[in-house]
Amino acid sequence: MAFVEQLIANLLYGAILGAVYGLATMGLSLIFGVLRIVNVGHGAFIMIGAFTAYWMFTLYGISPVLSLPLAMAAGMIIGVAVYLVVVKRLVDAPELATLLAMFAIGIFIEEAAKQIWGANYVGYSWEIGSISLPFTEIPYTKLVAFISSILIAAAVYVWFRKTKLGKAVRAVVEDREGALTCGIDVNKIYALSFSLGIGLTVLSGVLVTLFTPVGINAYMGGEYTLKAFVIAVLGGLASPWGAFYAGFIFGLIENGSYTLLGLIPGVEPFGLTRFVSFVVLMLVLLLKPTGLLGGE
């Protein structure tokens, strides 16, 4: 029975982690979808969100849930600034130029963060109890992360489907020239999408700390950048909700495969879970090269 119980426990944690992963990838997909820019500095923005949650909690005792809108706003402002200063000039430049620029911005932010906040690994303890299940314990903070992720993803979905601006963004994704001839200010849409993408990414940094409230550090983003790329590709790269959906699956695979791999004698299952995630990615790409929810 222990095996089944552990599998269920790991899948539960995987689902929660997956939702956070998913949201942490939406920003990346959005920016790629609209601007065709690969945000290699993705993790640095997640780190900003994590520090936002940390400082708000440590200095003012503000719960991380209330830090969510704050992080979103801060992220959007940073996003607009980065767009106006750097990205705007590079929209039509070769892909390598934007790749390098985003890489540089990522490094710049990380080093600036280290200068301002130091190199220490910090963390906070927001204790709101936990649910005791027969086979595991789930802290409410993780549930809050899970539910917030789903609600925010849903809100983004509705915004894209129902609002005029959201439709305009989709139009630009679909056909830039076409959108232009229909009177859509493509530059404005670019700025909006970029800042929205960064905003979502910074916000997801807060959710990341709800799941893992320790180990917050200027360089914490690297791990998430790597995973976000896998998830984004899995989800069809240009599709934010594809990314959310794929993140969910990624989390389930990452944690769920542990129990299954543990059945093989003589292997260290934890090291292999990433391997399995990548195998799944390759299989998906073989069978459906556009990703799970990718279009044509």
């Binding site: 222990a2 552990q6 426990a9 790991n10 944690y13 982690l17 086979f135 595991t136 990341v208 799941f211 893992t212 180990g215 690297g222 791990e223 944690n255 542990y258 129990t259 543990g262 260290e268 299952p269 934890f270 090291g271 879970t273 990433r274």
Partner: peptide
């Protein structure tokens, strides 16, 4: 006795097992 990879952000799989 189990190890986890460097950079792991969730140790719950290993700890769920350890608990037993």
């Amino acid at each position: 006795e189990k190890t986890y990879p460097a950079g792991a952000t969730d140790l719950s799989p290993i700890l769920n097992e350890l608990k037993a």
